[in-house]
């Protein structure tokens, strides 16, 4: 189980959180101008990164607030926790074969 450092409550068990999938996916400014393929890409297609990903979590059984997490999908190490709406911090991104 992950130990996630909630920015408001401190380190808590993963059990208390819900996963919000990939972060920083921007809604298209002009959805009516998109092709079906572009719309499908926005709605459904996500990176399947082996390495550091940026994702959203919500402390649903604690303070009920959302925040962003940078996590390595290989080691499960949480590299950074930062607020919603903020730019991701500069991280050293390991590459895996």
């Amino acid at each position: 189980m992950l130990l996630i450092d909630c920015p408001h409550c401190g380190p808590r068990a993963e059990l208390e959180f819900s996963y919000g999938h990939e972060a920083h996916i921007e809604r298209p400014k002009a959805p009516e101008a998109l092709s079906d393929a572009e719309w499908a890409d926005y709605l459904f297609l996500r990176d399947n990164t082996k390495g550091v990903i940026l994702e959203r979590w919500v402390h649903s059984h604690g303070c009920r607030r959302w925040f962003n997490v940078a996590r390595d999908t290989v080691t499960y190490e949480i590299l950074a926790v930062y607020p919603m709406g903020a730019e991701p911090p500069a991280l050293e991104r390991k590459t895996y074969v």
Partner: peptide, 10 residues
């Protein structure tokens, strides 16, 4: 005080 889960309940 703290909010958490106790045997699956809030």
């Amino acid at each position: 005080c703290a909010q958490s889960l106790l045997s699956k309940i809030d």
